[in-house]
Design a protein around this nucleic acid. Structure first.
Lengths: 141, 141
DNA sequence: CTTAATTCGGATAACATTGTCCGAAATAGA
DNA sequence: TCTATTTCGGACAATGTTATCCGAATTAAG
C-alpha cells in the first residue's frame, strides 16, 4: 500500500509524537532503534521530512529531530514521501480516469479511496500516540 | 496500490471477459492493443495468468488466450500477480501485527483493508464487463 | 580553540520491478 | 511436409526503490 520509506516515515512521526515533551529532540540512533529501521536509510527519510517541514532538526551534539509545532495528519506524512498517487491514481493505471471517462472498476474503488482518504485526513499523529505510551501498541517486530 | 503488472492483469482479464463468446481466443497483439500495454511485458503477465489457471492458452496460428471456464473474482487476479500482501500485510510493515500485538494504526486500517477485501472478493469479472461492451467504460488512455 | 557528536549531501551499491529480445516449441493450413 | 503464426521460456536491459558509505558542515562543551 505504502512504500517502505513511507512506512518508516509514519513510524518516525508517530514515535516522535509519542515521546514529545517541550521541544525535546530525538537523535537518529534513538529513532531507528525505536522503530526498527536501518539507520542510514532512516537518515534519508528524516531529511525528506525536514525538507517537507513536518520535522525540525538541529545539528551538533545534543542535536536531533522534533515534530513541527502544529497538528499533523497521516495524509501529510504519506504525501510528503509517496506523493498523492495513493489517493489520486486510477487502480487500473489509466491516465484519464474520472466520472466522465471511467475505468470499469472506477466506482468500486472510488469508495475505497474515499474511505482511505477519510482516515488519512482525519487521523492526526496525536490520535495514535496513546497506545504507544501505554505500551499496548507497537512500532516494531 | 497494485503493481503495474497487476494493473495490466486486471485489464487483460476484464477485456477478455468483455469479448468472450463460446471459446473464442484473443491473441497477444489484440490484447495489448486493447489495453494499451507493452507487448513483450504483457506476454509475461499472460504466462503468469495461464500458470495460475485463470487463463487457458493455445499455440500456433489461430492460437491465443481465453478465460478459464468459471467465475473469477478480482481477488484471484490480484493475488495471482501481487500475492496476498495487499489484504494481509500491516500498513506500517510490522511482521507481527494483529489484535494481540497491534501497530498504532491497526484498527483504522483493518477497516480499510476489510472494505478492499470485500470489494475484491465480491466483484467478479462479469460484473465489470458491461460498461466496456456499451462503450461507456474504458481500459486505456 | 579543539574535540566529539550530530545532521546534511552526494555517490554508490544491492535488489526489485518493469520492459525488451530472441530462439524454441507448438500448430493450423496450404 | 513446409510455412507462417502463435505462445513459451530464458536471458538480459532499463528503471526505480531500498540501503550503505563517507566526508562536509554545524554546534555544544571542555
Amino acid at each position: 500500500m505504502f512504500s517502505k520509506a513511507c512506512e518508516y516515515a509514519l513510524k518516525i512521526m508517530i514515535y516522535l509524537c509519542s515521546i514529545q515533551e517541550e521541544g525535546k529532540l530525538a537523535g537518529l540512533k534513538d529513532i531507528s532503534k525505536a522503530i526498527g529501521s536501518p539507520e542510514a536509510f532512516t537518515a534519508k527519510i528524516l531529511q525528506q521530512l525536514v525538507r517537507s517541514e513536518l520535522l525540525q532538526s538541529l545539528r551538533g551534539p545534543t542535536g536531533g529531530f522534533k515534530l513541527a509545532n502544529r497538528p499533523i495528519t497521516l495524509l501529510e506524512v504519506v504525501t510528503a514521501i509517496d506523493g498523492e498517487g495513493i489517493v489520486k491514481k486510477c487502480v487500473l493505471g489509466l491516465d484519464e480516469c474520472s466520472g466522465d471517462h471511467p475505468c470499469p472498476a472506477h466506482d468500486k474503488f472510488v469508495a475505497i479511496r474515499d474511505h482511505l482518504k477519510g482516515v488519512l485526513t482525519t487521523t492526526q499523529l496525536v490520535d495514535l500516540k496513546g497506545g504507544i505510551i501505554e505500551g499496548n501498541r507497537f512500532l516494531k517486530l
